[in-house]
């Protein structure tokens, strides 16, 4: 089985480790080859080296000035092209969302681009093999069990696994490994579909939302509370 894991280097590495770890769950049961894939600035190489120290087989970095400014749509397009260049794959793993942009869109968009089924919010892979995969999708009130044919894409939540420790052999390999860096041309993207030009979303402003105030609780007999509430609303000019 060929597995591709998409990671994103973000400030603070906790999320990165979770993604690169996810493959272990599947690996223990099947003979497989895991490729970790990322798109980002050249320094994202460090995240790939970390993934190698955990034991992944191959890594690929897609990095090009032409890709700078890509929104989720353009990013998913480029990633899909990159994965297509890797070749045969059975399963693609992505994090549910990155901790910087927080959109949770890229995984599902990659699946759409590749024309394969996907399940988001996976908390457990129950079984994989025989050309299909059965997973648990985390819901607010429990989970759903979903089966789909391979190749497929899943986006996983934190609960899927504990990050494994690096090994010394892995660290030695990570240190020496030459990391292939693919350009926009290498993965064959159309210039007007990536970067700022290919991104319909424009981020106008980034801000931390105002913390919400503590609110006020009115207690007492229903009739009396209703009366006080009405008065307060009147004072505040809502009624």
């Amino acid at each position: 089985m060929n597995i591709v894991v998409c990671i994103k280097q973000v400030p603070g590495t906790a999320e990165v480790r979770i993604h690169s770890e996810t493959h272990t769950l599947i690996r223990d049961g099947v003979e497989s080859m895991v490729t970790v894939f990322t798109m980002g600035p050249p320094q994202a190489e460090a995240a790939l080296r970390e993934a190698v120290s955990y034991g992944v087989d191959e890594v690929v970095l897609v990095s090009d000035r032409a890709l700078v400014g890509s929104d989720t749509l353009a990013t998913a397009y480029a990633i899909a092209k990159g994965i297509a260049k890797i070749g045969a794959y059975d399963l693609i793993l992505c994090g549910k969302q990155a901790i910087d942009g927080d959109t949770a869109q890229v995984g599902p968009e990659v699946a759409e681009r590749l024309g394969i089924p996907f399940v988001a919010w996976v908390r457990k892979v129950e079984e994989v093999g025989d050309g299909k995969i059965r997973v648990q999708r985390m819901m607010d009130d429990g989970y759903e069990v979903i089966e789909m044919p391979l190749p497929a894409l899943i986006t996983v939540v934190k609960e899927i696994n504990e990050p494994r420790l690096a090994s010394l052999k892995g660290k030695l390999r990570a240190k020496k490994l030459e990391i292939p860096m693919w350009s926009a041309e290498d993965i064959g993207v159309e210039e007007d579909q990536v970067g700022l030009k290919g991104s319909p979303t424009q981020v106008m402003r980034i801000f931390s939302p105002e913390p919400r105030g503590a609110g006020e609780r009115l207690e007492g007999e229903a009739e009396e509370v209703a009366q006080r509430l009405a008065e307060r609303l009147k004072v505040m000019g809502f009624v």
């Binding site: 494994r164 420790l165 690096a166 090994s167 010394l168 052999k169 892995g170 030695l172």
Partner: peptide
């Protein structure tokens, strides 16, 4: 088991016998 997975048991053993 963790020490084994992290290759710590390999440290002192020569490479020809699976060590580091």
């Amino acid at each position: 088991k963790l020490l084994a997975e992290s290759d710590l048991f390999r440290i002192w053993i020569p490479e020809e016998y699976g060590g580091l």
